Amino acid sequence: MDSFIGIRFKKETAKRFQEFSKTHFKSHTEALDTILDFFFYNEISPKEKLGPTGRTIEASIKKRINAVIAIIRDMEKCQTKPTVAMLESLFQTEEPKTKPLILEKKIIEEKNEVCPPAGRASFREKLNGSNEL
Rank of each mutant, 00 (worst) to 15 (best):
L87W: 13
I7V: 11
S122H: 09
N112Y: 09
N42S: 12
Q92I: 14
I65Q: 00
T34W: 05
I44E: 10
R73S: 12
F20R: 15
I61W: 02
E125I: 08
K47S: 13
I65Y: 02
A118R: 05
L87M: 15
L87Q: 12
C115P: 00
I71P: 02
V84H: 06
E109A: 15
I107E: 05
T34M: 03
I61E: 03
E110D: 08
T34L: 06
P116W: 03
A85R: 08
K15F: 01
S130H: 03
T23H: 07
A59C: 01
P116F: 06
N112P: 04
E30W: 05
L50F: 14
L127V: 13
F17S: 10
T98A: 15
A59Q: 02
T23G: 02
F40Y: 08
L87V: 15
V84D: 07
A118L: 01
N66R: 14
K49M: 11
R124I: 09
G51D: 12
E125C: 07
E104D: 13
A67H: 04
E110I: 15
K63M: 03
I108Y: 10
E132G: 06
Q92P: 00
T93I: 14
S122D: 09
A14T: 03
F25V: 07
I57E: 13
S130Q: 02
V84Y: 07
I35Q: 00
Q18G: 04
